Computed example of a mutant assay.
Amino acid sequence: MRVVIVGASGNAGTALLRRLRTEPGIEAVGICRRLPEQRGTGVEWHSVDVGHESATELLTPIFATADAVVNLAWQIQPSHDQRRLYRTNVLGSRAIFQAVLRAGVPSLVQASSVGVYSPGPKHAYVTEDWRRAGVLESSYSRHKALVERMLDEIESDHPTLRVVRVRPGLIFQRDAGTEIGRYFAGPLLPARLLRFGWIPLIPAHPNLRMQAVHADDVAEAYLSILSSDVHGAFNLAAGPVLDPDSAARAFRGLPVPVPGVALEGAAALSWWLRLQPVDRGWVKLALKAPLMSCDRAVSELGWRPRTDAISALRELVAGLAGRAHTESPPLRADPDMPGRMGGLLRGRLPGTGNPY
């Protein structure tokens, strides 16, 4: 089986390649904008900027002999450049879909997210048929919803194409520690202090209840999808639900009640001042995104996460403290990149520039 992975150098992409390398009979092809300096063996690499106007033409011949295309390409930063994010996330996804259709690829697997869902319950679980209008205040969520609408049209117009949508919660692994710190915390986070596994104060709100999953477990789900003939959408998350109380127990901290408006205001002001890279839309998404049932993944894929959500979070925090990284461009530890202190000292402010 020849599998083309678009966005192969990111958090989920590196985990998927790691898993496919151990699976006999699978030929992996990696596509990303900037190729890893250390590519190893067993993977065929191509450099393509999916947001460029020529992306469809460049991707079509690469897809021509593929049995499946897995689209993981997505940009979270720079949050202050919404045009660039739309270019990669929405227009780039459209270019990939067009290339899949032109090349006649039989299977398309799309990385979606819990962010595609409309606001929902925090003490119950929604299935894959929950409304998919996103959380309007979040550009990330709106873009996920737009991409899935494109997939709806493609499925309607091309019924022989197998389309699968993967909707995970937060994806954690140690190697992504530096990347996630750059994208979501910025250069002012005292990451080294996390090496003791202690966070003294935990912001607490009744709706700060989220789900997470380890990158290796996500990769296992992708392999199960590629090895079967399933269609449709699959939620992926590990238990338990992450909330302020569970975080306080895990990191020996004290939950401190904070009103939602204060969380939003602090994010909005510090983002506007370029102190950190996360706008208020991410806070709204955290407060409004529903909890997901993963029963379909369990029953149809036989999927069961090996790492629980607390352990995955501990691993990520350890990665943040240890500046864990790889040589893959998005996961690099270059101190001059946006979101790192070296970048800040050189005028590369959080939420600006292109960290990919």
Rank of each mutant, 00 (worst) to 15 (best):
T307F: 02
L161Q: 08
I31F: 09
R314C: 04
K144N: 04
P190N: 12
W271G: 01
G232N: 09
V230Y: 10
L201W: 14
P36L: 05
G92R: 08
A68N: 00
P240T: 02
F172L: 09
L85N: 05
S54H: 14
H46P: 11
S228F: 13
L223F: 14
R34A: 13
M341I: 15
M337W: 09
V43I: 15
S299C: 05
W45M: 10
D243Q: 08
L273V: 03
L16Y: 06
G319F: 03
V256P: 08
M337F: 04
Q110T: 00
E57F: 05
G13H: 07
L223D: 05
S328L: 03
K284C: 11
A248N: 08
L345E: 13
E315V: 02
Q82E: 14
I76A: 12
G42D: 14
G322T: 06
K122L: 06
L331V: 07
A212T: 00
V218M: 07
R296V: 11
L285N: 11
A318K: 04
A309C: 08
S118F: 03
V109G: 01
G302A: 10
V278E: 03
G115W: 01
A289G: 10
H52W: 09
V100I: 08
V218W: 00
D175A: 15
E315R: 01
L146G: 00
E23M: 08
A64E: 14
R304V: 13
E44A: 15
L16Q: 09
Q98F: 00
S107H: 12
R249D: 09
G186R: 07
E44C: 13
Y222G: 05
A185R: 07
P168N: 12
L20D: 03
S328G: 04
R94G: 02
V69M: 03
L254W: 14
E44H: 14
